[in-house]
């Protein structure tokens, strides 16, 4: 079950504060990295919500991220929709797609659930890839950023955008935490722990899973539309299943079913990517070994290990507070 513990407060504040300081005192490159981390962390939080707490290991979160980016990009760059409306439409659209995937796959368990989400994600990828009006495999350029001049912010500035991304990350974490602390979240954890019992108690499991997936999708879509604003160019590569795989790696490295872990995972993942890339082209080798090591070590992830060191005692044997 999810508790917003002191360790989680501390971790989230340290990560957000550290990144904000890095963005303020670092140069342009540092700010780009901060945005990258913030958006990856949002995607990982979205995934942890369904995977860690709902037991739904999704391989379509890359597609949800991409759908958010494409809905926003397509509406603003091609249709000329105002940014605020495109934002709302992108969030609603990804939530709807997530809801549909969640509803249709609710009866499928284990590895077959992973395969089913993979199928839906890849369908979205193929459609975007083949859709000439959306630029096909050339991608789509000319996407505007949110205009916040009205409240005195210039989103074209790299520091402002980095801090806005961090604010979006903080908001995503808060929404996920509130959802998990509510009866909605407790019920979701209950489904993960024992689906039959929840059904026997009179819960409509399918509807609940679909709703959880919709919420997760909206957060993933928010990360996607911010990514579209960040680079102002999007390509179908956002939607490929390996992006979902990377998000899953971030969740595992950070600690699945901990919600704070994905933040740690995203920092480590992006930092490693840039550090390792300085020495060698073969950074996937490093991440592959780390992933295997993390799972073989008990699957608690970095945050889980920290929590175990801080509070050794009964009940911390298995990683995460998912079930």
């Amino acid at each position: 079950m999810f508790y917003q513990t002191r360790a989680k407060n501390l971790t989230v504040l340290l990560v957000l504060g550290g990144l904000a300081l890095y963005a303020v005192y670092g140069g342009y490159f540092a700010r780009e990295i901060v945005v990258e981390i913030a958006l990856l962390a949002m995607l990982a939080i979205a995934l942890d919500l369904v995977a860690g707490y709902g037991g739904m290991i999704s391989l379509c979160h890359g597609a949800l991220f991409g759908i958010g980016a494409y809905l926003f990009g397509g509406l603003t760059a091609l249709v000329g929709t105002p940014v605020w409306l495109a934002t709302l439409a992108a969030l609603a659209g990804t939530a709807l797609f997530g809801w549909a995937v969640g509803a249709v796959t609710a009866g499928i368990g284990g590895i077959f659930f992973i395969m089913a989400t993979l199928a839906f994600g890849q369908m979205a990828y193929v459609i975007v890839f083949e859709w000439r009006a959306l630029g096909g495999d050339d991608g789509l350029a000319g996407i505007p950023r949110t205009d916040l001049a009205g409240i005195g912010l210039d989103t074209g500035d790299s520091l402002t955008f980095a801090l806005l991304s961090l604010a979006a990350l903080a908001l995503s974490y808060t929404i996920a935490a509130i959802a998990l602390r509510s009866s909605f979240g407790r019920t979701l954890t209950g489904i993960h722990a024992n689906e039959e019992r929840m059904r026997a108690l009179g819960l409509n499991v399918r509807r609940h899973k679909a709703a959880a997936f919709a919420l997760s999708a909206a957060i993933a879509g928010a990360a996607g539309l911010l990514a579209a604003q960040h680079t102002q160019y999007i390509s179908p590569e956002y939607l490929v299943w390996t992006v979902s795989g990377e998000a899953l790696i971030v969740v595992i490295l950070g600690g699945i079913g901990t919600l704070a872990g994905p933040l740690v995972g995203a920092v480590v993942f992006v930092a490693l990517e840039h550090v390792v890339a300085r020495f060698t082209d073969y950074w996937h080798l490093v991440i592959g070994i780390l992933l295997i090591a993390a799972v073989m070590a008990g699957g608690r992830g970095l945050y889980g290990e920290i929590e175990r060191l801080l509070a050794p005692g009964p009940g911390t044997g298995k990683g995460g507070d998912g079930a």
């Binding site: 899953l248 080798l285 592959g288």
Partner: peptide
């Protein structure tokens, strides 16, 4: 469980692919 198997063998893909590239 399937989750951990998926992850470990997913990690193996990365390792084997990069070894081949090397």
């Amino acid at each position: 469980g399937p989750m951990n198997q998926v992850l470990v063998t997913f990690g193996l893909i990365f390792v084997l692919v990069d070894l081949v590239r090397i």
